[in-house]
Write a protein that binds this DNA or RNA. Structure first.
Length: 292
DNA sequence: ACCGGGGAAGCGACCCGTAT
DNA sequence: ATACGGGTCGCTTCCCCGGT
């Protein structure tokens, strides 16, 4: 990449992977400009409009806002660098704003909606049991790190109709259909060698890591998100069904419909009151504003 | 036609610094 | 003090290619 940009980043201790990413994005950006302007543009000839157009072009390619924002961040740091070394008199990128993240789903009724799907999902013929178990727990507001509980942390009642899962800072209770789905999954998990109940295949491509490769490790976030993605597309829930959305809708539901105190919401979600407050704040803002 | 490998693209969470 | 946004990371999925 020109002007020693990559070298500069290298000195700042960015990892190889990151550098490659930067190079790729800048390459993309410049080849976009090259198509627009047959003769090569010097950096100081690149205008804010060029950058905005580039962003728009990426939007048309249907990249998600977060990807585009990431690219914008890279472009910004490139021009910031050029500005610092006096290669450009003005930084054309500095004023350009990030895209707003896509509007969240209608949160005010979202928990009820998610909850009403529980039954169809749990009785779904084609869904693997792990997907059902994930949904059950997501609906309880587990965050990613909560999913990493071990087999020892699961207590099943003698009558096999109640389950307690002991998490770091709270305990989850399951009963009825939820419990029986979970127990089924749990029993199945006993066959894998890992301590974890939820597992993912470990990626084999790990440099300098010979031997000692276990096949299964703690479940990866993306594994969870993928299952949620399938569900969300099958049930038309809009694209991003993340654990955070579950948690936010739960918080919102408890706050508005059940009139629960901040304290008890925080307790039930296993977070600090501050954080719970932020959840609710974000919600009220995002329902108020129409982004995008 | 079908696979498996390997690289590229896409993505979201997390962490942390900076602005307000 | 808090919100915001940039930077980094690790993973999945997509896509292409070469071998069967």
């Amino acid at each position: 990449m020109p002007y020693g940009f990559i070298k500069h980043l290298e000195k700042r201790g960015f990892s190889q992977v990151t550098l490659i990413g930067y190079e790729k994005v800048m390459g993309q950006f410049f080849s976009y400009l090259a198509k627009l302007y047959p003769e090569k543009k010097e950096p100081f000839q690149i205008s804010s409009k060029d950058i905005k157009d580039y962003i728009r072009a990426q939007e048309e390619k249907e990249k998600s806002p977060s990807t585009i924002n990431k690219e914008l961040a890279i472009i910004k740091s490139f021009f910031n660098y050029l500005w610092e070394i006096d290669k450009v008199p003005v930084d054309p990128a500095v004023k350009i704003k990030r895209l707003k993240a896509k509007k969240l789903v209608e949160l005010n009724t979202f928990y009820e909606e998610l909850n009403s799907l529980l039954d169809p999902i749990l009785t779904h013929k084609d869904y693997p049991i792990v997907r059902k178990a994930i949904y059950v727990l997501a609906l309880k507001g587990l965050k990613y790190s909560d999913f990493l509980f071990k087999k020892d942390n699961v207590l099943i009642s003698n009558t096999q109709d109640q389950v307690e899962i002991v998490l770091e800072n709270r305990t989850i209770l399951l009963s009825g259909q939820e419990a029986s789905i979970f127990i089924e999954f749990y029993n199945q998990s006993l066959f894998n060698s890992s301590d974890f109940v939820f597992t993912s295949k470990i990626y084999l491509k790990r440099k300098n890591d010979f031997g000692n490769l276990e096949n299964y490790g703690p479940i990866q976030l993306m594994t969870i998100l993928n299952h949620l993605k399938v569900i969300s597309s099958d049930f038309n829930l809009g694209e991003n069904l993340t654990l955070t959305i579950f948690r936010k809708s739960i918080a919102y539901f408890m706050y508005t419909k059940q009139r629960e105190s901040l304290h008890s919401i925080a307790y039930k979600l296993g977070i600090e009151e501050n954080t719970a407050l932020i959840y609710l704040k974000l919600i009220t803002e995002s329902t108020a504003e129409k982004t995008y």
